[in-house]
Amino acid sequence: MNLEALVDCLSSASCAVTQVSTGLIVGMLLFLVTSGLSLIFGVLGIINFTHGAFYMLGAYLAFTAYALSGSFLLAMVAGAAGVGLFGILFERFVMSRVYGRDILMQLLVCYAMILILDDGVKILYGGEYRMMGMPDVFALPPVEIAGGFVPGYYLFMVAVALAAGLVLWLGINRTRLGKIVRALAINPQMVGALGINTTLLYAGVFGLGSLLAGLAGALAAPIRTLTPGMGVSILIESFIVTVIGGMGSIAGAFLAALLIGFTRAFGAIGFPLFVDGLMFALMALVLVVKPSGLLGREAA
């Protein structure tokens, strides 16, 4: 524990800015992953344990697309769209067969899928660490804010994540399709009886949720090392975010993701060995005080 370092950092503008920016990007990645997870749970009522593996898949797809084309924009599209497509296939051919069956079967299917994806990546890319490196477009001098330096890519990432979150929120709350999706979450029989193709919608929602995980993976690729199995830690963190923010609430996911991001960024200075512990303590606290999460509606 090193409280002195934490106080020092908080009182110096440059260190605080650096840590805030780190917290922001960690939070934004978590927000993207969690909102996908939350969307799928909200509409389909299942927890997609493969979500972390989808994040990994997005990162590797972006890695390949960038190596082939040299364009980061294309890499992002490949990561997001590729994983979205994969999600649709996974929903149609695997997940949809275990709807309505006990959770054990759903868990097993996800467990099997993670094993296959992790091993598949290992076969294609090898087991060692891979680095994508910062795309040339972002090879700019860092932006100076109040004495602290923030890489340009960080700003870009935060902007993309915010835009994605905003589009998602508007899409669900302000469009006709979003209204149908919300109705689907509440009463699928009724939606089906009104002549709407629910099977297609389920696949679409699953695909959209997966796409968000893929996008997060693609955005993370330039700043993280890629390894098979890199999805597990972000999956666990997004579980924690879900519990803190409240299941099914996008705003809650946003708030909680930022909270966890800052906890990680500043915790790394104050309590380097206890960062994971801090997140769990935070989660336990929320569960005791407000079991439905900060912005959750019904009790968990």
Binding site: A112, M113, I114, L115, I116, D118, D119, K122, I123
Partner: peptide
């Protein structure tokens, strides 16, 4: 190992 085990489970 993971690939085989995963496939068997599926």
């Amino acid at each position: 190992h993971g690939l085989v085990l995963g496939t068997v489970i599926l």
